[in-house]
Design a protein around this nucleic acid. Structure first.
Length: 424
RNA sequence: GUGGGUAUAGCUCAGCUGGUUAGAGCGCCAGGUUGUGGCCCUGGAGGUCACGGGUUCAAAUCCCGUUACUCACCCCA
């Protein structure tokens, strides 16, 4: 590693040009799909009042307890770099009276989110999320639509073995009863479970089901399942969602242990799992959050959404075999055989670009061989050479870089000549 | 917050049990005569061997500490 006075902060990375083709491909696909499904873009601030996240995400969550980048501004107000999108979307929805628009209000966002965590493969302190939300509607067909957006994205990106995990975690009507059952069940087994789980029993019992410690597995295995105690409304909602999935032939796995860490989820929760992202498995997580609006001071508003991490998508793409997205390369690269051709090269370059032909020139007055080598490294399709002869008779020489041959043509016919070939 | 691993050129890494001007491949730059890329050949630039201390006649190499990076746990995208 090169020495330097500075380096990027821990867990925060640069996306160098060679990785950009992947990002470009992902963004292109996202734009295509949100249009297809009728979602509009919503850009939100990168930081919000701290209280929004405390109440929106939930006091008991890891995000709020230990992962937020919180700071005081010069007026001593507390703000926090967004650790997720959903709370901000809800804030904007309420603040701008967006409930007045046709419902559901369907939006997507793309941008960085921040969490203070120990970085590891597929996990960063700043990462980029593609976020999709639909607010103001409880119909399970909307849950299905949201999941379809995710499905469509990954399948268009060529992901194999799409692994959708779904569950229903109930609502304020039925979940308390389940938690009572669950804690009662665990109360008699305190000696059989790990230390973390003993804490979860008091703090966040739902997460007991999420534990990966081997000793806890048999306990989880025979634990009561929420599916048995869902209220009629939640049971019906979940059943209808599954029907839509079945009818569409979508693969999914019902995962009784999928509970998710954020407080605001109700009913449907889902994740999409992928390989190639280190020890992480989720490229996408989401669900229904009918209780969030009230938690942040709005009128009750049902909503569903998901977030997907672009870095994890890119890692997944890179781990799959198949050709990487092609990097950009110029159609034309201009080379001067003698320094006197410099003026011609500079004006010709401007003319080419004005005509919409992407072009570059060799800078710095190096040898022609060096200029040709650069043209090759930059993968130019055509090299246009201007030398003494061309200067003398008002011509240019066009060389084909991935074929044999070259030809000398009138300078004025160059743009037409190149355009004709690029359209082939 | 907890645990493991690693720190030598831009990148990937050699450098054995301490010994004199620290190496390779790739990349970069320049040449291989008269105006031309890719292959090949030649040459060149580039390193306070992470940092600080210690042991020793002698440390990239051994010991201690610090920092950084990395993987994993927790949790999540």
């Amino acid at each position: 590693m090169a020495r330097s006075s500075f380096q990027s902060p821990k867990g925060i990375r640069d996306v160098l040009p060679e990785e950009q083709p992947y990002w470009h491909r992902v963004e292109e696909t996202i734009r295509k799909i949100v249009r297809l499904y009728g979602y509009e873009r919503l850009d939100l601030p990168v930081f919000e009042e701290t209280a929004l996240y405390r109440r929106g995400v939930g006091e008991g969550t890891d995000i709020v307890e230990k992962e937020m980048y919180t700071f005081l501004d010069r007026s001593e107000k507390s703000f926090t770099l967004r650790p997720e999108f959903t709370a901000g979307v809800m804030r904007a929805y309420i603040e701008h009276g967006l409930a007045q628009r046709p419902r559901p209000f369907k939006v997507w966002s793309l941008g960085p989110v921040f969490r203070y965590e120990r970085p590891q493969a597929g996990r960063y302190r700043q990462h980029t999320q593609f976020n999709v939300e639909a607010l103001g509607e409880i119909d399970p067909a909307l849950d299905f639509e949201i999941m379809s957006v995710a499905y469509h994205l990954y399948s268009d990106l060529g992901f194999r073995n799409l692994n959708f995990q779904i569950n229903s975690i109930g609502c304020p009507e039925c979940r308390p009863g389940f938690l009572k059952q669950l804690t009662a069940y665990y109360a008699g087994r305190k000696d059989d479970i790990c230390e973390d789980c003993r804490k979860r029993l008091d703090v966040n019992p739902l997460r007991l089901l999420d534990c990966k410690v081997p000793a806890c597995q048999p306990v989880i295995e025979s634990a009561p399942r929420i599916s048995g105690v869902l209220c009629d409304e939640c049971r019906d909602h979940f059943a209808r969602l599954r029907t839509y999935l079945d009818n569409a032939g979508r693969p999914y796995v019902i995962n009784h242990r999928l509970v998710r860490g954020l407080d605001y989820y109700t009913k449907t929760v889902f994740e999409v799992w992928a390989e190639g992202i280190g020890a992480q498995n989720a490229v996408c997580g989401g669900g229904r959050y009918d209780g969030l609006a009230e938690a942040v001071g709005g009128v009750p508003t049902p909503a569903v959404g998901f977030a997907s991490g672009i870095e994890r998508i890119v890692l997944t793409m890179q781990s799959q075999d198949g050709a990487p997205p092609a990097p950009p390369h110029p159609a034309v690269f201009l080379v001067m055989q003698v320094p006197q051709a410099g003026e011609q090269v500079v004006s010709l370059l401007a003319e080419l670009r004005a005509a919409g032909v992407d072009a570059m020139m060799a800078f710095g007055g190096r040898s022609m061989k060096a200029q040709m080598r650069e043209a090759n490294k930059r993968n130019a399709e055509y090299v246009v050479i201007i030398g003494e002869r061309e200067l003398a008779d008002g011509t240019v020489t066009v060389k084909y870089m991935d074929a044999e041959g070259q030809e000398t043509i009138a300078r004025d016919s160059l743009i037409g000549f190149i355009r004709a070939r690029l359209h082939e």
